[in-house]
Design a binder for these strands. Structure first.
Lengths: 122, 122
DNA sequence: TGAACGGTTGAATAATTGTTCAACTGTTTA
DNA sequence: TAAACAGTTGAACAATTATTCAACCGTTCA
């Protein structure tokens, strides 16, 4: 569903703390940034993909390896790998009949690992 | 869709690097942890919620404030706030007719801010 | 060459999810 | 007390999405 289709003053509110709201609005990152953040998190927001990623943290793997690890079909894994490829989170390398996948973006790997550590701390 | 309904050897693979796969399997966090990580990321994986969160980084706000900031109805905002409440990411405080929301979990706030900084660096 | 296999892809299906709408609760205040 | 308003909620609807299935491509090797 489109997120931009809201009319002005669609909130139907009377009690708005205008001064605070304006200060907050000015301090917030711009809309596009927040959409990008959400898009990135959405990629991490599926357990098939988090399982693929945490496997690739350990080693470069071919599609069969991943399918075997996750106990899923090659097709299902391949679909998810496509999403990870399109978002530049993993890269692949072809060798003979096999395609080997590994992490592409260390930047993003760090974000993910940070979250994982924080969560397992608790 | 249930993620656990896969048969053993559903991958239909012959070429599996067994030794590597076993090493990776042993090193991976357990399934539940990865599901939890995915669940957390899923909450961040919607731009309405990332916008609410980045607003709450700046100030405690009532529902009308947020609705006005995002140009959305109170109802739509309230539904998203419920999700953030259930995952203990925000807390609320009632004062008269108004309900004021603020960030609950500094832990999670740090994860989110880290991601935001990394992304805006690039 | 052709069979076998690793991997990809598009369409179909089922499940999940975000917003809308209408009805509702609780608090204030006229 | 009754109207007005802040906020919540459940059902309905539309959109998105993950997996399945079947067909396909490219490489190997018998």
């Amino acid at each position: 569903m489109k997120k931009d289709d809201y009319l002005s003053d669609a909130c139907e509110c009377n009690l708005v703390h205008d001064n605070i709201v304006e200060r907050v609005r000015a301090a917030m990152p711009d809309e596009n940034t927040l959409v990008d953040v959400a898009e990135l998190f959405k990629v991490f927001g599926d357990s098939t993909r988090t399982r693929i990623l945490s496997a690739l943290f350990e080693a470069e793997l071919c599609v069969c390896d991943i399918a075997s690890l996750l106990n899923m079909t090659k097709s299902a894994v391949s679909h998810q790998l496509r999403i990870l490829r399109q978002t530049k989170i993993v890269k692949n390398r072809k060798q003979g009949k096999e395609v080997y996948y590994s992490l592409d973006d260390e930047h993003i790997a760090r974000i993910y690992k940070t979250a994982l550590e924080h969560l397992s701390e608790d």
